[in-house]
């Protein structure tokens, strides 16, 4: 996993609430190798049925080229558990998502892949999206160590993140190696459970 420390980048506003993972990557592109999925990101919003680009879709606008941050509305990444929704965004350069709320599974999948999901107050997120619409290609800065986001207006907001997940992100380590150090505890649990629920 690639570490996440800090990021200063162009941010793209997505106003629609409840953007689901089927929109982020339609099901028909799953089951392909990751490298073959890159163009599937927001496929049906980015491309017409004939394959031409949909210029009106915000991710296709030149001002947002090179964006690494998405500023979304509530419940971003709801729906299917497909982790490809996170990896396809990463493979298109995105590293952080700011929203008032996220689908729980998408949120966890971000943390497993070195992407940072940031929850901020709904009104503040709406205000940031407004600024990005008014002056596209403005940047946002995120610093994980201090848990802060500085918007295009220079206002800095703090965000919460679990210390455990923060540590994994900063170091770029996944949690399997850590869990394996608890082998004795897991074995003790299993031994007790064999006594208690012998039918399992």
């Amino acid at each position: 996993m690639v570490p996440f420390t800090s990021l200063s980048a162009v941010a793209v506003p997505l106003d629609q609430p409840n953007i689901d993972t089927d929109q982020i990557i339609p099901a028909r592109y799953l089951g392909r190798p990751r490298a073959a999925q890159v163009d599937a990101m927001f496929h049906d919003l980015r491309f017409n049925p004939d394959g031409s680009s949909r210029g009106e879709f915000i991710l296709n606008k030149p001002a947002f080229a090179g964006a690494k941050i998405v500023v979304a509305a509530r419940n971003f990444g709801c729906g299917s558990s497909r982790e490809n929704a996170v990896t396809v965004m990463l493979d298109n350069g995105f590293r952080a998502f700011i929203a008032p709320s996220f689908g729980d599974i998408f949120f966890n999948n971000c943390l497993q892949n070195g992407a940072l999901p940031v929850k901020l107050d709904e009104a503040r997120v709406a205000a940031i999206r407004q600024m990005l619409h008014q002056s596209p290609s403005r940047t946002i800065s995120i610093d994980l160590a201090t848990q802060s986001v500085t918007g295009p207006d220079g206002q800095t907001d703090r965000f919460d993140i679990d210390p455990f997940r923060k540590d994994c992100l900063l170091k770029g380590v996944d949690d399997v190696d850590l869990t394996l150090t608890y082998r004795n505890e897991i074995e003790r649990f299993e031994a007790a459970q064999r006594q208690e629920l012998p039918w399992l």
């Binding site: 966890n108 999948n109 892949n113 399997v176 869990t179 394996l180």
Partner: peptide
């Protein structure tokens, strides 16, 4: 429900 990284985590641990 879990994503594929957590599937791997459960498989291993």
């Amino acid at each position: 429900g879990i994503g594929s990284s957590e599937v791997f985590h459960v498989m291993a641990t």
